[in-house]
Nucleic acid binder design. Structure first.
Lengths: 231, 231
DNA sequence: CCAAAAGTGTTCAGCTTACACCCATGA
DNA sequence: TCATGGGTGTAAGCTGAACACTTTTGG
């Protein structure tokens, strides 16, 4: 490629991933204990430097897979972070991404290898650099998205119960919902298919399992269909 | 600064600005005719390369000021664009920013110098690279923001009439509002101060001027105050 | 038989929406 | 005097919010 632009400075570019999971009780964050200086041994988001052959999205996917073993999961860019001194190691422009994963699917060996751990969203250790700010932004973004799009399902197993779903939304929005209103609302969207099975872990009576119907949702989009959870 | 990270590639980093204005009739976009290769002579967003002493926000402010003469205007980051081949000149990671300016305040000489022109948001020439995508994103973001935050005022003169404000919102959301309902809604937010003056350009009767009361808005925030325009 | 979670309807208040006429003035 | 845009109120329907009891079953 002919290089048209000359005389301008170049920079390290990194991606950092805010990885969310839900264990049925709490919304959680996957953090690693940093294995190299500066700030070695401190808690950090999983990140990596951009390689020359890959787009920034691809870099984020690579980094996510490196830690969790997962690909084809919900992964979206947050924004870029570019304060001059944000990384004391050297100037780095970092692009934040957030991922929603099904918490029982990640690769435990990889997580051990990177000294990673799940922390509750309301009780995790202070992070290096501007990573706390990134988590803040990611949580806000998750709340906004979850309000208007059915992305909660990304954090749940394929089959889930209405009470599980409600608990998840309560964790995301940090607010309790009335179970009658919640059920009415969520079933009214017509995007859940009720199965014949019951989940018996959570209670003696057992709760019916449902599955998110992606096709139905895609079909309903257009023709003025609106998914919205009131908070 | 000790350089901790070695062996990683470095990249050009740029900022590109989507600049919105409102002339009383239409929502507009300020575009420049690119004065250097590649794609010289084609329409483009105003942009510039990141310098080593400045944050990416500062770079965006610099670029905006370079074209409009304005600073301290509404300017917010959109996201980063990082496809490998997005810029045929060389690999460049670009951070998109969008700005809302009062259209009668920009510096005409500068705009001439850069061969810039205002285009209606629904009728502007095809842009270079991924700039069309950036404009798309910026418009969506503007719509979202304007729905939940009183940022419309950034695009209007200090003093404005309710019909002018309504016209602006109609342009942003590409949808007409009932004038009685709009007035009721917007005045109900309690953040407009009615002045004793009338604006007589728009009609023979004249319409009362209002001013946005930033202090009042800031005060109302907290205590569950919600600004929301229904679309 | 009892504890614990699942499941189910109705009412009221507030908000959104639709809608039509008079006012002030410059030309 | 008339054309043009500014300004005003009300009624109907819908949606969100509040609220309590029955069902099932494992221990």
């Amino acid at each position: 490629m002919t290089e048209y632009y000359s005389g301008y400075d170049k920079y390290l570019v990194a991606v950092d991933c805010i990885i969310f999971g839900f264990d049925g009780q709490e919304l959680k964050l996957l953090l690693i204990k940093r294995g190299f200086p500066p700030a070695e041994g401190e808690w950090s988001l999983m990140g990596g430097f951009l390689k020359s052959g890959e787009s920034i999205n691809e870099a984020a996917e690579r980094v996510l897979k490196k830690l969790t073993g997962l690909h084809n999961v919900y992964l979206e860019q947050l924004r870029a972070y570019g304060e001059v001194l944000r990384d004391p190691g050297q100037r780095v422009i970092s692009i934040g991404y957030y991922a929603l994963i099904k918490i029982d699917e990640y690769d435990e060996d990889l997580v051990k290898k990177y000294n990673a751990r799940w922390f509750p969203i309301d009780n995790f250790p202070g992070l290096i650099f501007d990573h706390n700010e990134m988590v803040d932004h990611a949580l806000k973004r998750l709340q906004r998205k979850a309000q208007n799009q059915p992305i909660g399902f990304e954090l749940l197993p394929d089959k889930f119960t209405i009470p599980q779903l409600q608990k998840l939304y309560e964790e995301i929005f940090r607010k309790e919902f009335d179970k009658r209103n919640f059920r009415k609302k969520i079933l009214g969207f017509q995007i859940l298919r009720k199965l014949d099975e019951k989940e018996k872990e959570g209670s003696k009576k057992g709760a019916f399992l449902y599955r998110f119907d992606q096709k139905q949702y895609t079909k309903l989009l257009g023709s003025g269909y609106i998914f919205e959870i009131n908070v």
